[in-house]
Amino acid sequence: MKTILVDDEMLSLEHFKYQCEDIDAVEIVGCFEFPLDALAYAQEHRIDCAVLDITMPEMDGLELGRRLKQIHPDLVLVYVTGYGEFAQEAMALRAATYLMKPYSKDDVVFAMHRARLLCRGGEPRLKVKTFGRFDVFCGNQPITFRNAKARELFALCVDHNGGTVTMEEAVDKLWEDRPFNEQTKALYRKAVMSLRKQLEEAEASDVFVTGRGVCHILPEKLSCDYFDLLAGSVEMRAAYMGEFMAEYSWAENTAANLTRLVRRRMRPDF
């Protein structure tokens, strides 16, 4: 993914470039302190992604993004700034994401991974909503799960953000009033089979990975408000109102952790 960086502070350019050095498939082809230089480069070269500071004296990053997309309509934009009030306008330009300074290595990895997904032809096939109740969408259509426990197992995997869910934990969470025995193991396997079939029908079977007595999801295959909040999304921070998969009692601990995370990130010194 051929990427340019534009920031009127050279140290910021060098820092972001350094953070991208070991991210697969990201090729930094230009670093520019002046927006007009970036535009001139874009006129003569193919670029897939532009990482733009918003507050610059010559031309702000929002205007630069508009002009770059006139040259390359499929260009993916990533915005970086220290000012949260520009988030809505940045998202109106269909930016891949919006990084607040100071950002972490994980923030950069998430932003560039999301940009690569968009460069490959659009958003992930599945969109997961966790704020409030748990819902899964394929395109714009909600998925209606035929097996309620398959739905809850998928929710538990999302809660683990790519981490392994063991059969023992799944039984403890999904069948909390029943012992861990051959009957509940069979119920777990039935839920796994139902979830696999449902995802195959949605042409998203690669999202869910199973092994002997374990399962997990691949977060990079999903668009998810929870994952975006963890990655530092200002938009998702504003959207989170304290409820996370509210229908599942086992999700209460994650909801409390997210509330603390949001409060900490809202502090001026964060």
Rank of each mutant, 00 (worst) to 15 (best):
12 S>K: 07
241 M>W: 10
48 D>P: 06
108 V>F: 02
264 R>Y: 11
216 H>Y: 14
154 F>H: 01
262 V>Q: 01
243 E>C: 13
269 D>C: 09
170 A>S: 11
247 E>V: 10
95 A>M: 02
29 V>K: 01
115 A>H: 05
36 L>N: 03
70 Q>W: 09
54 I>G: 05
220 E>A: 12
45 H>S: 09
97 T>G: 06
58 E>A: 13
22 D>G: 04
209 V>A: 06
14 E>L: 15
124 P>V: 14
266 M>H: 09
24 D>H: 02
162 G>A: 08
253 N>W: 12
86 F>R: 07
147 N>S: 11
124 P>H: 14
256 A>N: 15
99 L>S: 01
64 L>M: 03
3 T>Q: 06
252 E>W: 12
142 P>L: 10
251 A>N: 04
91 M>L: 15
38 A>K: 00
138 C>G: 06
47 I>V: 08
85 E>V: 13
192 V>S: 05
26 V>Y: 02
45 H>F: 10
44 E>S: 02
54 I>D: 00
169 E>Q: 15
223 S>G: 05
67 R>H: 03
67 R>D: 03
208 F>R: 00
19 Q>I: 08
168 E>T: 14
228 D>R: 05
183 Q>E: 15
47 I>F: 00
76 V>A: 04
27 E>N: 01
59 M>C: 09
263 R>F: 11
246 A>C: 14
24 D>S: 09
172 D>K: 07
110 F>Q: 02
179 P>T: 08
252 E>V: 13
4 I>V: 08
20 C>M: 10
230 L>H: 03
2 K>A: 01
254 T>A: 14
209 V>R: 07
238 A>H: 11
2 K>I: 00
250 W>R: 08
41 Y>K: 01
60 D>P: 06
203 E>T: 10
179 P>M: 06
74 D>I: 06
56 M>D: 01
66 R>L: 13
171 V>L: 12
208 F>L: 08
20 C>N: 08
78 V>D: 00
43 Q>H: 04
36 L>D: 04
239 A>D: 12
246 A>L: 14
57 P>F: 05
146 R>L: 13
133 R>K: 15
22 D>E: 15
197 K>Y: 08
51 V>Y: 04
148 A>P: 03
109 V>P: 02
127 K>V: 12
61 G>S: 05
157 C>S: 09
216 H>E: 05
